[in-house]
Design a protein around this nucleic acid. Structure first.
Lengths: 233, 233
DNA sequence: GAGTGGTCTAGACCACCGC
DNA sequence: CGGTGGTCTAGACCACTCT
């Protein structure tokens, strides 16, 4: 016997998905109530609820009390990019990871950074520039500013062998982040570190992170040309 | 009185998050069992389960049968980019959207496309090039190929006033998609359409979509310089 | 084998919202 | 007001996996 002793919420979920995909329930259709579906599938209402809640989270259906559940009209597609530590990204491709510190400077935060992070006047920031290599080929250039007030310990970190990203993750797990993706032309510095011609198009990811409302760090990560950030959904 | 008549799964979830953020339960800590937490919070185990399942989905904790629940060590942060229809992206900024068809060509699929979409030999593909403007300024250039076998109706669509993206979404909701983001230099065609100098860095999003295993369309969307794809998490 | 999470049930009450 | 989804409970059995 197959392992279908009970009607599971996954059975309900998958069958509803099938009916939607097969146009048995076209866009905008009002679905049966949870009670009716529970009867049809011969299961408890909670089981149907579990299945439908998942569909609602995925944006496949819209649910409203009293109104009922409808097949979503314009499903908002979401692409989930996993932002992992660079080292993991590299090691996943079976390449050898190498880290190199380029510069570590303590200074008062420049105006634009103070504005970006909403820092008080004359706040101190630690700037860290470093490189990440895959099989000894330049993979990513990292340019980071760390809010010293938020992470006083950072003054004792030399970042000689461990990158600031991994260092921070171990100590100050952030609660909020803002990410941006742009395309920029390599300037003189970038072209040297990434070993590419001047003005080569480069994918640049910038991120600002906060811990419980306090700004922690701002970072710009520039990838080697040809890097493709990808995902499925 | 506040509406806290019962211990809700949200209370449990938020309290657990607090303890993790406040380092009461540092990374790697083994959490109490569901039964113990249920006792502590004075609620049913199912309630605790609901809360913990949500944290597991967010990657905040790792759960394993028998082993128990642990605070995730290197929380894999996920960035969710909403891939909306261009028109919505533009109208959200209160700009006026304008669409223009550039080219519509029916031909046999070129080899590279056949390979990309896994099409049979000599399959027909409809190529559609078009522009999306925001307040009459070039916003995005779209270059798309549509698998005619998957969407025969497409031959009757002229795409004169409605873009292929919106047309397809109404008819062939895809089930799977693969997305990539790269940075490219504007070629001659792109520099004309986007009104930018040759070789300007441009953010390019490419996407292949399938409907129940059958390839539907492949599209490259090139954004105007300065476009920043962003999100929070 | 035994401990832990995963799921299901049957019933209950509540919250929202359209009528 | 009444219908629908949202959630909680108490108990049960199952499935995975560590020892």
């Amino acid at each position: 016997m197959t392992n279908s002793r009970k009607t599971s919420f996954q059975d309900v979920r998958d069958e509803v998905i099938r009916r939607i995909q097969d146009r048995e329930w076209p866009q905008g259709t009002l679905l049966p109530t949870e009670f009716e579906l529970a009867e049809e599938f011969g299961c408890a209402r909670a089981t149907v609820n579990r299945a439908m809640r998942e569909l609602a989270e995925r944006g496949i259906v819209d649910r409203k009390r009293k109104s009922g559940t409808r097949v979503a009209v314009a499903p908002v597609k979401q692409a989930v990019f996993e932002i992992a530590v660079v080292r993991h990204t590299i090691e996943e491709t079976n390449a050898t990871y190498r880290y190199a510190l380029v510069q570590r400077t303590l200074a008062t935060a420049p105006d634009w950074l103070a504005a970006q992070l909403n820092l008080p006047d004359r706040a101190r920031a630690l700037q860290v520039k470093c490189m990440h290599y895959a099989d000894n080929r330049p993979f990513q250039f990292e340019n980071r500013w760390i809010n010293v007030d938020a992470v006083p310990d950072v003054l004792e970190a030399d970042f000689a062998s461990l990158g600031p990203n991994e260092w921070l993750l171990e100590r100050v797990p952030f609660t909020d982040a803002e990410i941006g993706l742009t395309s920029v032309a390599a300037d003189a510095s970038l072209s040297e570190f990434l070993a590419i011609p001047l003005a080569t198009p480069v994918l640049q990811l910038d991120r600002t992170t906060w811990f419980q409302g306090q700004p922690v760090t701002y970072v710009r990560m520039s990838y080697h040309p040809g890097y493709r950030m990808s995902t499925r959904y």
